[in-house]
């Protein structure tokens, strides 16, 4: 157990890295803008080159903040899942939550074609997409929880989560088969994952959803610590199991569902960041882990986004691929180095 003071210095270091990552992320992009000019613009100055100003304030800054929110949200939801199921493999993807969000998005984008022709306007808006994706992830999560109360074996539970994921994927393929090319393309682009398409308005909405999720997460820190001993011990420590479980599930649904709705299904972050954090901080205390995963997730996502946008080229790689390519080896390396999974 480290003393609070060393935790404080770790956090100061982490926040410094976050600021540096943010700076690098904003200063790099398809158009090369000198670093000094970027700094000048970010700190409120106006640039002579108004195009640069526009790029920074309407493209790069919202994108960087989206990356921060996405990384933080997914990481926290992964931590909550891993502790709730007391399983190091749990994460928004493995338990089918992201598939649920995809299913919701697929129904809205592809299934709404007939409905919108009926109403005469498109039902696919940011808000409706966010709501439907969140509902999708909630439904899958609820289904997994319902089964979880009957199945005691956590490995079985993971397989059930994967099965729900497969079912969602199958329904999505059926929907894709019957949909027209334009709608399909819209959905495929959504499923690549992207942090670059959010306006300030959408960013605000995502921020509100995530703040609610994070607050619920912080409120469940104490039951989360008790759950490290198992449910029966937690109960004997006075934890209201039913209430805590719902609190954690709602928080996860908001975090993972909200992120997936706005940025698409982004793999790996939710699973990996809690492990990286536990390895580096060497603790299971959620009072440390919850803030730490938020910052770690944000840093990792900023780095992934910086790579995905391929500095000084016009191409942007799917962020979903980068998170896995960059993140998976890091986790493998950490596990090999420590020779075991700390959970």
């Amino acid at each position: 157990m480290q003393t609070p003071k060393t935790y404080r210095s770790s956090f100061v270091l982490l926040l410094t890295v976050l600021v540096i990552a943010l700076g690098i992320n904003i200063s790099l992009g398809s158009v090369s803008i000198p670093f000094s000019e970027t700094l000048h613009s970010v700190f409120g100055g106006t640039l002579d080159n108004t195009a640069w100003d526009y790029i920074i304030w309407n493209y790069r800054v919202p994108k960087a903040f989206t990356a921060i929110l996405v990384g933080a949200g997914l990481s926290l939801s992964g931590l909550l899942m891993q502790t709730l199921f007391r399983n190091p493999l749990a994460g928004p993807f493995v338990l089918g939550i992201s598939s649920g969000a995809s299913l919701g998005a697929a129904f809205l984008i592809m299934g709404s074609a007939t409905l919108s022709s009926l109403f005469g306007f498109s039902l696919v808006t940011d808000v409706s997409l966010a709501i439907v994706s969140s509902i999708g992830s909630f439904l899958v999560l609820l289904a997994v929880i319902t089964v979880a109360s009957k199945v005691k074996d956590t490995m079985a539970l993971l397989i059930i989560g994967l099965m729900f994921g497969s079912i969602s994927a199958a329904i999505v393929s059926v929907l894709s088969y019957f949909t027209d090319a334009q709608k399909l393309q819209q959905f495929v682009y959504w499923s690549f994952g992207s942090v670059g398409n959010l306006s300030w308005h959408q960013l605000g909405l995502l921020f509100v959803i995530l703040i609610i999720g994070i607050v619920l997460g912080i409120l469940s820190i104490k039951p989360l610590n008790a759950l490290l001993l198992g449910e029966n011990y937690a109960k004997s420590l006075g934890v209201n199991l039913v209430r805590s479980r719902y609190l954690i599930i709602i928080a996860t649904g908001l975090l993972a569902g909200g992120v997936t709705a706005f940025a698409g299904p982004i793999a790996f972050i939710g699973l990996a960041v809690p492990h990286l954090t536990r390895q580096i901080f060497n603790t299971t205390e959620h009072r440390v882990l919850v803030p730490a995963v938020l910052v770690y997730g944000a840093i990792l996502m900023l780095i992934c986004d910086t790579i995905a946008q391929l500095p000084s080229s016009a191409e942007v790689l799917p962020i979903n691929a980068i998170t896995s390519i960059l993140g998976a080896p890091v986790v493998i390396w950490l596990l090999v180095r420590k020779r075991k999974m700390v959970f």
Binding site: M1, R86, K222, N225, A226, L227, L228, L229, G230, N232, Y233, S236, L237, G238, V239, R278, T283, T284, E285, V342, F343
Partner: peptide
């Protein structure tokens, strides 16, 4: 208070952290 037969979920807790959980109520 109880000591059960089931193993604890996380073996990554330190002794101090685990005993401190007893103060949760």
């Amino acid at each position: 208070s109880m000591v059960l037969t089931e193993p604890i979920a996380s073996k990554n807790l330190s002794v101090l952290e685990l005993v401190a959980l007893g103060r949760q109520p």
